[in-house]
């Protein structure tokens, strides 16, 4: 009897599991559809001419992608420059931000000194304060430093990134054995050398995740750059998109409009497909261990 009961309940358990699995796949399918459909529609529309676009949506792409892109690059909006500017700013921001945030986390994690916990508390307390609330003072400062139309005020401030710091500090707490550092000290390695050669490589998964997060937020950033960059050749892609929006867009060739949006979105998607291993794998490998 007892044996029969367990068998029956195991069978029904595996049945409910199958149902739950099916529900999960269906929901995931619907959600994936809503994530991807926009980019599919964007791709289709970017390949069609203005006249074709006027005739409503089709499922199959047309043949005018090259033409749209050519028109875009010969148009009045400096897209090529915008792309280079955006790439440069976002890459340098990701690099500086993660390197120095790891360094700050390392200072709090590894050393003991007076005021350490006060500083840690302070960084966590200011962690959430948005940059926008100091934008006014920031513009005034940049103007006084004569750094308008310069990339420095968009890159250097990312060195003090409390959220990146917090993530890295948490990862470090469970993934950086202090005995390793002590061993390196006994081997006569300098403190900066230990940080660069031992701590940084061990932090790689977390750094990769944060580098992507930082790159994305810098790449997406429209608010601050639009206050700092005024010269057409210095503008980043988000500012150019805003410019496109504020122009009397109906006069535009819609094929070009879609090509411009596609141009600012698809390169990132392509790069992401290669890097997704780091973000998905990186988070699942490390994450917040207690």
């Amino acid at each position: 009897m007892a044996v029969n009961n367990t068998m029956a309940s195991e069978k029904s358990a595996s049945n409910t599991l199958r149902v739950r699995r099916t529900v999960a796949y269906v929901v995931l399918g619907i959600i994936s559809f809503f994530c991807l459909i926009w980019f599919y529609m964007l791709f289709i529309n970017a390949t069609r001419s203005n006249a074709e676009l006027g005739q409503g949506f089709t499922v199959i792409p047309s043949t005018h992608l090259g033409e749209n892109l050519k028109n875009l690059f010969h148009g009045t909006i400096p897209v090529g420059n915008g792309m280079i500017n955006s790439l440069l700013i976002a890459s340098l921001t990701a690099l500086l931000s993660t390197y120095f945030s790891t360094m700050t986390a390392y200072s709090i994690q590894v050393y003991n000194y007076k005021g350490k916990n006060a500083i840690f508390t302070f960084i966590l307390a200011i962690m959430m304060i948005p940059t926008q609330v100091t934008a006014l003072g920031f513009i005034n400062l940049v103007r006084k430093m004569n750094l308008e139309d310069n990339f420095i005020p968009l890159i250097v401030p990312s060195i003090a990134a409390p959220i990146t710091f917090f993530y890295l500090k948490q990862y470090m707490a469970s993934n950086l054995p202090l005995s390793l550092i002590e061993a390196a000290r006994i081997d006569g390695e300098g403190e900066l050398g230990i940080f660069n050669k031992i701590a940084l490589p061990l932090m790689k998964p977390a750094i990769a995740v944060q580098a992507i997060f930082t790159f994305v937020s810098s790449w997406n950033n429209y608010f601050t750059p639009s206050l700092i960059l005024h010269e057409d050749k210095k503008k980043t892609l988000p500012i150019l998109i805003a410019q496109l929006r504020s122009a009397d867009w109906l006069k535009f060739d819609m094929g070009q409009v879609y090509a411009m949006i596609a141009f600012s979105i698809f390169p990132v998607i392509l790069v992401y497909l290669f890097l997704s291993k780091y973000i998905v794998g990186g988070v699942t490998a490390g994450g917040v261990k207690e």
């Binding site: 926009w38 997406n220 805003a242 949006i261 979105i265």
Partner: peptide, 21 residues
Amino acid sequence: KTVIYLPNLIMASAFAMLFFT
């Protein structure tokens, strides 16, 4: 996971422009 994280990478202003059109 790759798919659901994808929209977060998209430049918000470009995404808004896309929705506008």
